[in-house]
């Protein structure tokens, strides 16, 4: 595992931070809006478990626009 230690985490950090922001914004929206296409719990799980794509899937397909 020493190869992983060689990876400079300060370069990777911004990715993780941005992904976290994305997931948090999506979660706040899903909880505040409470209106989704499909079950709300499904979208919470997708946001939390499907990596970067999860929040995007929510914003594009899960979010009720009106």
């Amino acid at each position: 595992m020493e190869e992983l230690a060689n990876i400079p985490w300060n370069l990777i950090m911004p990715i993780l931070v941005l992904q976290l922001i994305l997931a948090v914004v999506a979660l706040i929206d899903v909880i505040r809006n409470k209106r989704t296409n499909g079950p709300i719990i499904m979208w919470v799980l997708i946001i939390l478990l499907v990596g970067t794509i999860g929040p995007i899937l929510y914003f594009v397909f899960g979010r009720r626009q009106t």
Partner: peptide, 15 residues
């Protein structure tokens, strides 16, 4: 939130 998530996705891809 399009004003926020679209730039974030483009930046993530860029990094």
């Amino acid at each position: 939130f399009k004003l926020y998530w679209i730039p974030i996705v483009f930046i993530i891809l860029g990094i």
